[in-house]
Design a protein around this nucleic acid. Sequence first.
RNA 1: GGGCGAUUAGCUCAGUUGGGAGAGCGCCUGCCUUACAAGCAGGAUGUCGGGGGUUCAAGUCCCUCAUCGCCCACCA
Length: 880
Amino acid sequence: MSSSDMPKAYNPKDFEDRIYKYWMDNGCFKPKEEGKDPFVIVIPPPNVTGVLHMGHGLNNILQDVLIRYHRMNGRPALWVPGTDHAGIATQNIVEKKLRAKGIERHELGREKFVEETWKVKEEHHAIIKKQLQKIGSSCDWSRERFTLDEGCSKAVREVFVGLYERGLVYKGNYLVNWCPSCGTALADDEVEHQEIDGKMYHYYYPFEDGSGKIEIATTRPETMLGDTAVAVNPEDERYSGLIGRKVRLPLTDRIIPIIGDSYVSMEFGTGAVKITPAHDPNDWDIGNRHNLEKINILNDNATLNDNVPEKYRGLRVKDARKAVIEDLKAEGLYIKDVEHSHQVGHCYRCNTVVEPYLSKQWFVSMKGMAEKALNAWEKEELIFYPRKWENTYKHWMNTIRDWCISRQLWWGHRIPVWYCDDCGEMIVAREAPEVCTKCGSSSLTQDNDVLDTWFSSWLWPFSTLGWPGKTDDLKRFFPTSTLVTGYDIIFFWVSRMIMASLEFMEEVPFKDIYITGLVRDKQGRKMSKSLGNGLDPLEIVDEYGADALKFTMTFLSAQGQDILIDTESFKLGSKFANKVWNASRYIMMNVEGRNIIPFEKIELKEIDKWILHRLNESIKSAESAIEVYRFNDFAQAGYEFFWNDFCDWYIEASKISLYSSDEKEKDRAISMLVYVLEQALKFLHPYLSFITEEIYQKLPQTEGSLITAEYPKSCGQNNYPETDESFTLLQDLIRGIRTLRSEFTIPPEKKIPVTVFMESSFKAEKFFISHKSLIAQLVNTDNLVLTTEKPSIDGSVASAGTGFEAYVFIRDVIDIEKEVAKLRKEQQKMAQMIKQTEGKLKNGKFLSNAPDDVIEKEKSKLAEFTERAEKVSFYINELG
RNA sequence: GGGCGAUUAGCUCAGUUGGGAGAGCGCCUGCCUUACAAGCAGGAUGUCGGGGGUUCAAGUCCCUCAUCGCCCACCA
């Protein structure tokens, strides 16, 4: 092994692609054949519409961290990749593309259009897959799925028909949310409400008998053409006696009744409401209660249809509104309009204003399934991280409404329902029927509509494993372990997966649900195309490498917290990877020509025990962090160990041995370094995947790949608390002396005498003495005295630790004023601490209520502060 | 209108059962010390949003106010 194997500069481009290929070629991403208790994640399938943004990046990085951690811990680890056909979103993109070429989808025809869409799908799929691979996602590509592939389609038909057979799928004529631009119905959740500054229009409806008129107020005057009643609150004294009378609907020749309904608020508007059952959800309910006629006045593109007087036909809603207002004015019925801001529904895909629209649609009855899902949560079969999202889940399940699943689109799973052209029979079937089950006619037409995208994704955790087939994968890997996703799709997706799974698999699809934060820019704004503040994961990989991306995102993933980043943020990970690279290079350089001793045969010195103890403690904290999805703590444990303990202390200390002439000691020291590095690489692998693999394979005495190596576990064996305690004191000593040197600006190369006085009770006396040369090296002195005799402090400045004091002789360079000022500051601090501690100890209540160990601690603190205060006063006198 | 969350160093944020305030970046000082200047050593900086309460003890628990954010909701 030669150091030339490691280039001087860390350059991730040199090896990341090669390493990923190595993993692929060696089947490293497949779950191992043997072994129980598999760890399974199915990817939240990205939409094939787009490319991955940083939100996806975060999501997949965290999944990868989990998968890699559990894979190394010996569990068969499976991460199923896949993509979503994303019905409306994809169809919109393809339509836009065609429109740019001057082609409308209807000109093309359904078949050709779908063909075109598959092409677009393939293009985007290739990009997405490449992106996931670039960031190192260790998914099992041999099991990749797509929501529209044959297996998923089979699952979809099975579920549709299954629910139909259970009476949970039904077709009905209902008021749905209609997107005139997409030309399809939307589910309630797909409507986004936005605050719009609109107007409230006031005008009169005259009584039929000409005896007067009633003032109504509305935000949507054009819908009056579909009015079938005027409603007032029966309690409203202003209108008492009017209920049951009739008004003439202006601009039309219709006569409609005045009805009483407690829904109408007496405080709002005029207290009289026009009722349009076919175009407003509330009016719909009122219409049902009062058995009113429902007049649909719109076409599916939001123009007015033939149910309105001829002059309004074909007008768009906006224009119809103007026309209606003009005509009301002309008839002298118009009163006024007032500013009024209110919530208006918009399509979540194209942002068009959504119209309540009467049409025939397919629905899933949700209440029963929601109850089961709620029940599973109450029994703690599901846990959200962080738990606060359980409120959201609960609330949604409690207020759930039936799910409109039909979409008037071409891209998606076609509804498995056929109609007989001859007798009109409706046939709901898993496979296309040959002939009508009623009349035997072979002239059948399939329902034109497709299913909501989520109707395939809600089956994802089991359809991807082969359901409805009884596959080995399904048996072995279902239910899955953890779902990692964003909070924006708890309703759309998470909740529905739980319901589908309980319904068809009779158990929850996953136990843990980790909800990631949202990725935002440094100003806290959502990343969006229009703001141009989005970050492309691939650009980050290009600039800093995938490991920098992965580490940074993991390190910043505090549970329940959004992540604010810009390009600069990734320097954090980049620097860390660089540090790992260089520390490894240092070790590799010193491996050359040395005899590497197996760890079991290395004779451990105190400092070796110390680093083993630190490693052990760090692993322990990493273990407990990942257990509860505290990714930031998980990453921080590795970061601090590697940088602060291993590099800053252990490697620095190793230089004494490695640069000595003691060949045996050199062998011993490098063997320890290699061993600890190997453990550290394993430790860091979940988030520094490429670089650790690259280095691991260059280490002496390693075989195979790191990705499938065994993760280090915390254990009792590497537990050396006394050594750790002593070493901490030694660090205090060295830092104290360095601080003095720095404060008095003693040039680094200048060696000055140091005397360390250790009190008789000092616990680490032996430890200090045995590490004398190390101390001397790290504080740069050639005259170090360790003594238990009180030394003279003449010409020195001092640094105090617990049980010892270090005197740095600096007569030649001392700045008395500076030193005195510093001591005064410390004197004040000590006085304050003493006051605080004494206060507690004089407090009878404290003494009687606080636990003994706390009281003891306070006492020893007081002693410590008092002693220090005395010393400080003494120094001030001496110097001043 | 209902619900949830946030407010800690200049910035972004940790702080897990209440027990002597932390990290990264930035800033200041000194160093190109034979792994790393993407580095090393050292340093400064906080009435933990305001007010009240519980407690021997509050960044941590309770109440209240303020500011910001998110989600849900049919007031025409």
